[in-house]
Design a protein around this nucleic acid. Structure first.
Length: 440
RNA sequence: CGGGGUAUAGCGCAGUCUGGUAGCGCAUCUGCUUUGGGAGCAGAGGGUCGCAGGUUCGAAUCCUGCUGCCCCGACCA
């Protein structure tokens, strides 16, 4: 992408409403624009990151055997009356009516709808287990949205729903999502710690929140220091093996880890001081096992091997990709701006032409740009007629992992500079070496 | 939902107390000079002063009502 042709409305000053660093940087880097309280437009740079995150989430859901579909954002009130949640959900649910005065709502979550879909087609235990997910916009009319997309009213959520014949099967489904979540966050370069959690309005009796540690986190968390450095399940782990999955679950839950709501000060204080981690955290995922809470009232039943109708055992599993964008920035930034992990970066390479109009510099940049793009690398080519300082500041701000800096000074020696955004390390390479570095 | 703020150009702000028809910095546009860490000079454009009433010869400024947004608390992917 040529920057001169891109839409990147960077702000030099910080809008005053932005309190936390991720919100400030997202506004300054031209990633989002607030349209109403807690409602944001995603600008091209922000959307690129959101899509990368979404894709990682999708790949790991698929790997764990979940199947993608897409449900609507607008739902019928009647569906929610079946589960009893239409009244129970309260003011957080945005209720609307259509031209025929039918009561509708903007979906805050989809347990009811997925249960309705399931019961419409599935009759036999032989079709189980089943895990269906979608990545769709949700709306929760928060009393007080804040921190940009971290706590917004409209937000993107991946929500998966598992269906099993019995509790043991449901447990396995839960464990698969548990392992998939560990992999998902690790691929984004985040250390997410599963913590026993309150189930809230979703209901049920088994639940874990996945928390990443960040000083600006909204919850207070306590955990064992071992969590700072634990191996993530490999891509080829046996998701279908119940014992293997149970092993992953046990390994990751046997040490102390809890949010303040579930905190047991006695148990935590019993740990040696060096192993106690007390910090603030951001919830980036939440998984629930709630049995027949919805299948019972909504009559989602299958015929078991014994020929009897049995309500299915269900669980639901959420990740907030839009919140993750902010969480990633909280975990990856410095004074100059964002530092994207490569897996979610909007562009992999930022190519800075320090002297637009200089024949040699232009030619070198055009050559590098063409070859890198041809190799399938996302390159943001800063071909604007700006001074070098402005280009460095822009690339630092938007956090592109690798900067390739081309100027007359270096080219005189046949060299360009390659700078690592995270480490700040600079190397002087020839054009060919640059190509080899990124395409090898 | 309780409490506290705030609303003036794209962004950040002054002007409001004491009424006289809107200004500064950055950004934008033009020209010249510059070009390895957010350049300099000269010029230019851009605002129904949140909205609606009212007071007044005259309202960004005073009065009334409304709305948006932000912050603090109780709730949450």
């Amino acid at each position: 992408m040529r920057l001169s042709r891109f839409f990147l409305p960077i702000l030099r000053e910080t809008p005053k409403e932005a309190e936390i660093v991720s919100h400030r940087l997202m506004l300054r880097a031209g990633m989002v624009r607030q349209e109403s309280a807690g409602i944001y437009a995603w600008l091209p740079l922000g959307l690129r990151v959101l899509r990368k995150i979404e894709q990682i989430v999708r790949e790991e859901q698929n790997r764990a055997g979940a199947i993608e579909l897409l449900m609507p954002v607008i739902q019928s009130a009647d569906l929610w009356r079946e589960s009893g949640r239409y009244e129970a959900y309260g003011k957080e649910m945005l209720r609307i009516s259509d031209r025929h005065e039918r009561e509708m709502l903007f979906g805050p979550t989809n347990e009811e709808m997925i249960t309705e879909i399931f019961r419409g087609y599935v009759r036999s235990y032989k079709d189980l287990p089943l895990n269906l997910y979608h990545i769709q916009w949700k709306f929760r009319d928060e009393v007080r949205p804040r921190f940009g997309v971290m706590r917004s009213r409209e937000f993107l959520m991946k929500d998966a729903y598992s269906f099993d014949l019995d509790a043991a099967g449901a447990r396995h489904s839960y464990n698969k999502m548990f392992a998939a979540y560990l992999r998902t966050f690790a691929r984004m370069g985040l250390k997410a710690i599963p913590m026993r959690a309150d189930t809230g309005p979703i209901g049920g009796d088994l639940s874990h929140e996945f928390i990443i540690l960040a000083s600006t986190g909204e919850s207070e968390v306590f955990c064992h220091s071992d969590y700072m450095d634990m191996p993530t399940p490999p891509a080829d782990i046996a998701f279908d093996d119940r014992d293997v999955m149970q092993g992953v679950f046990e390994e990751w839950t046997k040490r102390y880890a809890a949010t303040s709501e579930m905190h047991d000060a006695g148990a935590f204080d019993a740990l040696p001081e060096a192993q106690r981690v007390s910090a603030r955290g951001i919830e980036v995922g939440h998984i629930f096992y709630f049995g027949t809470k919805y299948s019972q009232p909504m009559r989602a039943v299958v015929n078991g091997p014994d020929g009897k109708e049995t309500p299915v055992q269900m669980g639901s599993y959420g990740i907030g990709p839009s919140r993750l964008v902010a969480a990633l920035i909280e975990a990856n930034h410095d004074d100059a701006g964002i530092i994207w992990p490569e897996s979610v970066a909007p562009f992999t390479i930022g190519l800075a032409n320090l002297k637009v109009g200089d024949a040699a510099t232009d030619a070198a940049c055009a050559d590098l740009y063409a070859k890198l793009e041809k190799a399938g690398i996302d390159v943001l080519y800063d071909d604007r007629d700006e001074r070098p300082g402005a280009k460095f500041a822009t690339l630092d701000l938007i956090g592109v992992p690798h900067q390739v800096i081309v100027g007359p000074k270096g080219l005189a020696e046949g060299k360009v500079e390659v700078k690592n955004r995270r480490t700040g390390a600079k190397e002087s390479l020839s054009l060919d070496e640059v190509i080899n570095r990124f395409t090898a």
